[in-house]
């Protein structure tokens, strides 16, 4: 898919996540050790799949639908947690109301709640 094709109004545009062959800069050899919250997002995605609420395809579709801005603006697991949330709502496991209420409660526990949460094993 060349740039010319992308500008052709008679053809549908290539999807943003379908990156093969796009122009891009040098590969920056970055990596980081994953934080606990990132690993927990990953764990919750894997467990949700094992329990049959969605497949990796549903996760990918939600990530794709977040669009290219989210890809540039958010980190990998920031996008994953949003895709996880969406798939769990679609599967009827969680409601938006439950999530919103709980997130409000968590914020009310204070900015340092993360310290407590990181150490606790009971959730």
């Amino acid at each position: 898919m060349s740039t010319e094709d992308q500008n052709d109004p008679t053809r549908p545009p290539k999807a943003w996540f379908d990156m093969g062959g796009d122009l891009a800069g040098a590969v920056v050899p970055e990596e980081h050790d994953y934080a606990l919250w990132e690993k927990r997002v990953d764990a919750l995605v894997m467990l949700s799949q094992k329990k049959g609420f969605f497949t990796v395809d549903g996760l990918r579709r939600a990530l794709e639908d977040m669009g290219p801005d989210a890809f540039e603006r958010l980190s990998y697991y920031e996008r994953w947690v949003a895709a996880l949330r969406r798939n769990l709502v679609e599967a009827g496991v969680l409601t938006p109301e439950e999530l919103a209420t709980r997130m409000e409660e968590i914020r009310a526990r204070g900015a340092t709640y993360g310290d407590v949460s990181a150490g606790a094993t009971d959730g």
């Binding site: 919250w37 919750l44 947690v81 949003a82 996880l84 439950e98 999530l99 968590i106």
Partner: peptide
């Protein structure tokens, strides 16, 4: 993102 993770996990 962290608040979302905690909320999903707790629920």
């Amino acid at each position: 993102a962290q608040v979302t993770e905690i909320a999903i996990r707790e629920l």
